[in-house]
Design a protein around this nucleic acid. Structure first.
Length: 469
RNA sequence: GGCGGCAUAGCCAAGUGGCUAAGGCACGGGUCUGCAAAACCCAGAUCCCCGGUUCGAAUCCGGGUGCCGCCUCCA
């Protein structure tokens, strides 16, 4: 039974979709005006993992992730570079896909752009005005927060306290400082669309309400995003959507924790951020993904080079083990190892507990330890290890890999091993030297390979090699 | 100022009332090896502090200290 921590109730709740087997899920995507940083990667990986696990559980998941492709930051960038705004957004959508592919993100069902739904946005806003939740002032349309009684129910804020805070920007058009913009009048030379209120463009929050309803209906099961979106973005989405439909907007709110740098929030304004491609210069996508999954999705990650290094070493351990399995002869004898037989069960248990990926990963390494020990024992006593055990392990691993999006390569891919005839030849020469007890020659061959980035491992009846990672 | 979160070995990180506190990385000792590598074994934790509840607490409650986040755009 899957349990999910719901931001709104602050409790672990049993997950039961609204319509038996169908799960509707919406995740706030990125504003496309720059390369993605590792914070975007974390959010993407988190919800990708959730998406994959729901699919694994047999749900028919309809998953929407949007692109915000019209916004002040995009317009600013367009002005700086003297290009049309959509050239900027299209460029960074393309770059986005490059990054997402590198970290193993599965494509959502729908990936709409805000600009594809201008007409729907205008309709939505018109209805809010009709229902008395929004008002127009001089070409801008605002949402009237005080009209929506439940405002603050997600972020657990009280309207009075928000008003007391002096940090809300004063806009003389607004009737109330808490009101937020639904439709923004455009300045000359800015991108704009015709509307009943004149030329303008949508505010930020409205697109998610509109697209969520358009693709998934009035009430959806899961809505997610980074924890900084809780307020005001998701609070405002609730206000917009529920005012229109008079129905519950979202049943389970899920928010991922932040990336920190030296214990401070990573943000563009502080300038302490790494882009995904910065990281990919040093580590591969699987390592970055594994590193993210090593921490529970709601906890912060203090992002570090050392952490990535440890992640890489852990994956080395996994793939070295696969290499060992592949180079070991197995036979029909039966043998039981508890942790291996219960691996998939333990994995599901961990994942059912609010997607506890660190625990899920620990279960995998538990098995590897037990299996290695067993193989050591077999080797020592000249026994043939059980093929059935290997099959059980690999079957479970293929399911786990499919959900986590790591552990999903062959060791040959991971270590980048091609058919290198010359390496095999060198190994033969070295083994011959070893048999002749010419250790000086044997060592010099091994060093030669080491200099070429090749590490040898001697087993009882064969020598295997891998590339340094 | 208001609201919220976190504090577990050198580092990362699960566990949230009960057998010896998972797992990974690093370091040290050992086994194996011609030497290595890989693997395994051993060593290593006052579970931030002080009280309380309980037969029993890292886990629940109260207080304290420290760090962080949100309240403005932000994954």
């Amino acid at each position: 039974m899957l349990k999910i921590f719901n931001t709104q109730t602050k409790k672990l709740e049993e997950f039961v979709p609204l319509n038996d087997n169908i799960v509707t899920m919406y995740v706030c995507g990125v504003t496309v005006y720059d390369y993605c940083h590792v914070g975007h990667a974390r959010s993407a990986i988190c919800f990708d993992m959730i998406y994959r696990y729901l699919l694994y559980k047999g749900y028919d998941v309809k998953f929407v992730k949007n692109f915000t492709d019209i916004d002040d930051k995009i317009i600013n960038k367009a002005n700086e570079e003297n290009k049309p705004f959509d050239e900027i957004s299209e460029k960074y959508i393309k770059e986005f896909y490059t990054d997402m592919e590198a970290i193993g993100i599965k494509k959502p069902t729908f990936e709409p752009k805000a600009t594809m739904h201008i007409k729907d946005i205008i309709d939505f806003i018109s209805k809010l005005i009709e229902k008395g939740y929004a008002y127009e002032v001089d070409g801008d349309v605002y949402y009237s927060v005080s009209k929506f009684e439940a405002y603050g129910k997600l972020s657990h804020k009280k309207i009075e306290e928000l008003k007391a805070g002096a940090r809300i920007d004063i806009n003389e058009n607004k009737k109330d400082p808490l009101d937020f913009v639904l439709w923004k009048k455009s300045k000359p030379n800015e991108p704009s669309w015709d509307s009943p209120w004149g030329k303008g463009r949508p505010g930020w929050h409205i697109e998610c309400s509109v697209m969520s309803m358009y693709y998934l209906g009035e009430t959806i099961d899961i809505h997610g995003g980074g924890e900084d979106l809780i307020f005001p973005h998701h609070e405002n989405e609730i206000a917009q959507s529920e005012a229109l439909s008079d129905k519950q907007f979202v049943r389970y709110w899920i928010h991922n924790g932040f990336i920190k740098i030296n214990n401070e929030k990573m943000s563009k304004s502080l300038g302490n951020f790494f882009t995904i491609r910065d990281v990919l210069k040093k580590f591969n996508g699987e390592t970055l993904r594994y590193y993210m999954l090593l921490t529970h999705y709601r906890n912060p990650i203090d992002f570090s080079y050392n952490g990535l290094l440890a992640a890489k070493e852990a994956l080395n351990r996994y793939y070295t083990f696969l290499m060992r399995l592949d180079n070991t002869k197995f036979g029909d004898e039966a043998f039981r190892i508890d942790s291996i037989e219960t691996l998939i069960f333990n994995f599901e248990n961990a994942m059912d507990n609010d997607f506890n990926t660190p625990q899920a990963i620990a279960e995998v390494f538990n098995c590897i330890k037990d299996f290695n020990l067993y193989l050591d024992t077999c080797q020592k006593n000249n026994l043939t290890p059980s093929l059935q055990l290997k099959k059980t392990f690999l079957n479970s691993m293929s399911k786990i890999a499919q959900v986590l999006g790591v552990f999903d390569k062959s060791y040959k891919e991971w270590y980048n091993l091609e058919n290198n005839q010359w390496i095999e030849e060198k190994i033969k020469q070295r083994n011959k030297a070893k048999r002749e007890k010419n250790y000086a020659l044997a060592d010099s061959i091994r060093n030669e390979l080491l200099n070429a980035g090749i590490i040898l491992e001697d087993y009882k009846d064969k020598t295997i090699w891998k590339k340094i990672k």
